[in-house]
Design a protein around this nucleic acid. Sequence first.
DNA 1: AGCACGCCGACT
DNA 2: GTCGGCGTGCTC
Length: 802
Amino acid sequence: MAQIAQVLVDVPTMQTNDPYSYAIPDQLADQLQPGMRVTVPFGHRVVSGVVVGFTTSTQYEGQLKSIRAVLDLAPVLNPELQQLADWLAQTTYAFRITCIQTMLPNLLKASVERQIVPTNELTATERAVYFPDGAARDFDTSKLDTDTVAGLLKLRRAGKVTVTYQVKDKASVKTTPGITTSLAPQQLEDLKQSVATRAPKQAALLTYLQALPDHPVPQAKVAHAAGVSSAVIRGAETKGWLKRTPLEVYRDPFQQPVKPTTPLRLNAEQQAAVDAITTAVTQRQAKNFLVEGVTGSGKTEVYLQSIAVALQQGRSALMLVPEIALTPQMTNRVKARFGQRVAVLHSGLSKGEQYDEWRRIDRGEATVVVGARSAVFAPIQHLGLIIMDEEHESSYKQDENPRYHARDVALWRGKYHDCPVVLGSATPSLETRARAAKGLYTRLVLAHRINDRPLPTVHIIDMRAELKQHQGDDDFSAPLLTAIQDRLDRHEQVVLMLNRRGFSSFMMCRDCGFVLKCPNCDISLTYHVNPRVMKCHYCGHEEAVPTVCPNCRSRKIRYYGTGTQKVETALQKLLPTARILRMDVDSTRRKGAHEKLLNQFGQHDADILLGTQMIAKGLDFPNVTLVGVLNADTALGLPDFRASERTFQLLTQVSGRAGRAEKPGEVYIQTFNPDHYAIQLARTQDYERFFVTEMHMRHQGNYPPYYYAIQLTASHEDESVAAKAMYQILAAVKQGLSDQAIILGPTPKAIARVKRKYYYQVVIKYKHEPHLKAVLDQIRQGSQRAPRGLAVAIDAEPMNFM
DNA sequence: AGCACGCCGACT
DNA sequence: GTCGGCGTGCTC
């Protein structure tokens, strides 16, 4: 019986979330496999799709259409990744095709192009206006002006033009000319004798050709080895001495070769960690580890030696790092150990380079993969080990559909491959640490720094007292300024961090540090300009904007936030001789700018590096002996239950930047909340106590990890449409879920209007909701037929509650 | 996502 | 009377 292909079409809707059936033309029958991309007729156009299986019968009553073309020679999704895509769609409430697109490199995303073709029905004037060059033209409504689009649509309705569709596959393989020769060595020798005296270059080429291997050799290599120019080679080609054939090459993102390194000697803790991971790797256990190592405890060396074990076992390894940590220094460290076997996947590569790295992995040529979030989908086979460094980083969660967390995907793949997953962090997320406490992960603690380097001394500066004493600059306390001046005198370097996160305005008293909070949620209230009120983004509570501090009656209660530029100017005024380097979103927008700034600082072209969060991660300059945090509180004030956790993580990390090598480090943290546990415990780098304290807070507030959370967001240009949609969703949620579920909202988002759209949200906290999936699917169905421009998003375990 | 079908208001 | 607005429903 004839086979029917099941195809997921590239149309992300609820109705097309299940595969459609297509007949398979005879000439495609023996090449078609699940996991291949195809083009199919769909309605009155052609779209791309992915074959997910074959059947012999179908429910569909109508006449089946046939697959148009196959886009791939081999499947782009292996069976594991096909299964993963389905699981991803289930758990993130995203469309299956959207998940598949996310898993594939950008170049494999086929695009559909429309063309508009004139017919004989057109009048001469119409032809002159719309088809000046007489031929068909591209019909991209976003690129043409509205009048032209309207005109062309009108002509189509009149049947005077037709529209054609073309699916364009962007996947392109780069080639270079490859040299082969069909002449025998003796023939070449004869030729050489005949030209030897007058054409030494040709003779040299002929000598080289005599020793040419059977397979094609890149022309550049031939030219270099024989010492001839490409003109000589082209000349030889016309004489029939050699043939040039296209040779597939990889766009090589590794420019310069890296000096190889050998494994470093491990201390007892590191060795114990490597041993535990080794056992799991060699026994092929899907066992998960949490490597909890203070900054400077040598986690990376543990990762590298564990990867080496997997490779020895003939398996491959995946190492995930946050995008921001994916610097050449970082990747070079891996390449130095594993050389050619390493593939790097990240957004800094061109589309072509990404595709080539992906193919090297797919073909098993690269067995160590280093990359950011989306690298978790790399088509690696025989996985022996997955490592996720800085596991607590929120960038592992994608904030568009599918809203997946790379950690969950890593754990899924570990299970699939029976291989261990190692999560590493100095400050693990509460979720992860709690799971370790429950025994789901094995904890491997690295409590000692390499060579027992001391931790930096951390000073907490009470900015309330500071501001009382010296009027003038808000941003710099006297002790911090003195410390900076001291480093300048000693020709040492300083890192200053300005916490820009949550520039969103909350009210804080400059005299006592009091932050206005919601009486119901214990979350800071957010200042709204229009209407002028304080609002809680969790429960919707509203109150008037205070003019005096409810705590100390001071009038100095105002909203809080400052910018790097302003701080730079102020600092330059205070310290005219200091050379300051500013690093923020603005100064690093250009590609490579980030790198360049860090290199400058590394060469001591500047004394002070002033930046936002981005300087907290992984940079390591031995000459930095002072780290200052200008405003530790901004993140604390955010209306998010993870505010304390983020603050603790950030302060702990940035403190780790001070004092490397022989020079001891010092850290100054300026804060209006010197007694807050997140700040106090960051001072002593006491993660365990922070974990216990914060878990208690989460328990009190019914927050994760004690509860699961789902965030539903509706957005629309018209605020009332978004709000109305959210109230309808709320009704559906309330009706479908048990009264055990805690439903917060609807509330406007902290930043109520982004890109001309208003956002409203509802958060569901729950422990056990068997109907949840059904309720959310019902909401998804409902949002199909929503007013134009309304977007409803479902985010399981959201990272941003604002 | 597109696109057709179909039902209402403002124009040649 | 028709043109064109966009709400609704379908695509194997």
